[in-house]
Amino acid sequence: MLDDLKLWVRLLATAARGRMQYRVDLFFQILAMALTTAADFLMVWVLISACGPTIGWTLAEASLLYGVVLVPFGIVQFINAGFERFHDLVRRGQVDLLLLRPRPLLVLVAGEDLPVRQIGRLAQAVAVFAWALWMIPLSMGDCLLLGWAMAWGVVLYLSFDVIRAASAFWTVEGSEMWNVLTYGGSMAAIWPAEAYRPVLRTVLLTIVPVAAVGWLPVAQVLGKDHGFPAWVPWLAPTSGLVLSGLGLWLWTIGLRRYASSGS
């Protein structure tokens, strides 16, 4: 297990060196990714400043939520990109080659790619988060809750990627539909969920529990009324565990199916 973890880090380092061969554009690619993803912050900023106090969240508060959601998301996009390419690997028959290696397929796929440009996404989210932390005084307990939530955020987004990748064992078509789960989920999560109509809020707290991992703990820290007992924001982030279990189960039966269908 530890050995596999070490291999994963090593594979990522190798993948990054491959990417570094095209060093000239690297800087621009990182900058471009930061610009593209900053559009989401632009939305938060514009809506808060255009509609003023009616929303009940200040820009700093919304930025805290933004960071709690997008820093874990950025980390996962950076270290876990192999899964995003998995449909392509299946389509090109590359998975057969990976299966010839005496290691868990999950580790080999996770180590397939380290897209350096994703640093742009992460850096942009970290910058917003840092500003929010500087603006808002937080107690030790608050920081603990946010750190706890963000760690589960990483687990949650990793699970999304595994579920998305596992679907390739059944069909390689329509892989872009899974973007709704990953990018759509994170986009919906950066806006305070109490403002949403009940249908979307329920979806985001249960089926795609991005708000359970992001909004609930942040609302608690900021003293907003989220409508749940105070222990719920501590427990809710562990919903990532359920999804990671689901992801691993789908991956296992998918792999078994792949081995018997050979497609």
Binding site: T14, A15, R17, G18, R19, G93, Q94, D96, L97, L100
Partner: peptide
């Protein structure tokens, strides 16, 4: 295993 039409080497390295 060697597949004549697939590579198991890291392309850019």
């Amino acid at each position: 295993v060697v597949f004549g039409q697939k590579s198991q080497l890291w392309w850019d390295l």
